[in-house]
Amino acid sequence: MELVQGLYNYWIAMILMMAGFYVVISRGNLIKKIVGLNIFQTSVFLLYISMGAVEGGTAPILEEGLTRFSNPLPHVLILTAIVVGVATTALGLALIVRINEAYGTVEEEEIHAQDEPA
């Protein structure tokens, strides 16, 4: 029980990760792939943030009476990672737009079928 309850944040992160990963590898639609990739990355953000949390801790602001606060570093890190994730998504979508212009489709199989004879 401890394994499930005590570490529930990791379970959620892991389930999200696997779900996202599954979407990436199983879907042929490029947009869905990007969505999957996003879920995959989000799970990691959660993992980071949850590991910085301290029970009963507040935001890390130095003030009288506050002695317990969460570790701010993971938050800072994940802010960067989110930016990277947004950039990746933007680039991925931009590529999909170009692919759609070039092939007229965003389905992986149809794209492959078009390239086969070439």
Binding site: F21, V24, L30, K33, L37, F40, Q41, V44, L47, Y48, M51, P74, L77, A81, V84, T88, L91, G92, L95, I96, R98, I99, A102, Y103, I111, D115, A118
Partner: peptide, 27 residues
């Protein structure tokens, strides 16, 4: 070649997966 687009996309997916794995490891 237009296949450059799909190649880049494929690389983007694989590369991001790889980089995210590294991120998890670092975390």
């Amino acid at each position: 070649d237009r296949r450059a687009l799909t190649a880049a996309f494929q690389y983007l997916i694989m590369g991001t997966l790889g980089a995210t794995f590294i991120l998890i490891g670092v975390g």
